[in-house]
Nucleic acid binder design. Structure first.
Length: 254
DNA sequence: CCAGACGTTGTT
DNA sequence: GTCTGG
DNA sequence: CCAGACGTTGTT
DNA sequence: GTCTGG
């Protein structure tokens, strides 16, 4: 799963900057970034932050979107708020089958550039948040689905969800779920697969080309450490230090 | 057929 | 809009 | 997902 | 133990 992320301005803009179109970057800074919650040192999906996503419609120039996909059939704002806490993630195995995701899976895929994400580990009846990031400190590219929903009161509402897959060894351990159902992790793309994720498909027979991209990311490329609380009264909020290592003396992890 | 849901996570 | 449960 | 509430009365 | 809110 993936319910907590860090998304700095630098990470979010990495894709827009890679081609060296500085006027585009300037436009993003002036016109889009003020409508976002950036920089996000930590945000929970349940707070439905506004972020930049790169869609298949314009892969180099991002749009502002809210985390928590609103399916096309949602009719009003009340129904929307019942739905969007349940569509923060989308199971990769079923995105082409579920009514909430199938249209977006076929026609509206996107990338979300983040610094890293947070997961909770359970030990001795307590909960310990971990921050997970790439060993090389480069941004993590997540696979997403996005959508434009017509809010009858307020116009077009752009939202997205993060696709998940089975967890690798490291994330299974952080989740320390010993059995039965396989733990989950977000779908992290590589330089090759991120372009394929945005590649349009027209026929149902091409769905497998997208499904083939859904696999867990090698744990050898990831690093991690514990951080201070991300929930409840001890939560420090969206401050820069929130992703810094915070050692819990009582926690034994290894 | 109609009514009602439509979704995710893990159970150290 | 489309699928599932009764 | 985790943290925190989990109830009643009448009304600032 | 289980539901709700964020």
């Amino acid at each position: 799963m993936c319910y907590d992320v860090k998304a700095s301005l630098e990470a979010q803009l990495k894709r827009a900057k890679r081609l060296g179109d500085w006027s585009a970057v300037e436009e993003i800074m002036e016109r889009l970034v003020p409508d976002t919650d950036l920089p996000i040192h930590h945000a929970s999906g349940f707070s439905h932050p506004e972020m930049l996503i790169y869609t298949d419609k314009d892969p180099e120039f991002p749009v502002v979107a809210t985390w928590g996909l609103i399916p096309h059939w949602v009719s009003d704002e009340e129904q929307m708020k019942k739905t969007w806490n349940n569509t923060l993630n989308a199971r990769g195995e079923t995105i082409f089958k579920k009514p909430s995701f199938k249209q977006a899976a076929k026609n509206n895929r996107c990338l979300i550039y983040i610094d890293g994400f947070y997961e909770h580990h359970h030990y001795n009846k307590a909960t310990y948040p971990f921050y997970i990031y790439r060993k090389d400190k480069e941004p993590i590219v997540l696979a997403g689905l996005w959508n434009e929903w017509k809010n009858p009161d307020k116009g077009i509402f752009t939202s997205f969800t993060i696709v998940t897959t089975v967890a690798n060894g490291l994330l299974s351990k952080i989740h320390n779920n010993p059995k039965l159902k396989v733990p989950r992790m977000p779908l992290i793309l590589t330089e090759e697969t991120e372009e394929k994720w945005l590649n349009p498909i027209t026929e149902d027979s091409e769905i497998y080309q997208i499904e083939n991209l859904i696999e867990s990311y090698p744990e050898s490329l990831l690093s991690y450490h514990t951080v201070s609380r991300l929930r409840g009264k001890e939560y420090l909020g969206n401050i820069e230090e929130i992703s810094n290592e915070f050692v819990y003396e009582e926690l034994v992890f290894e």
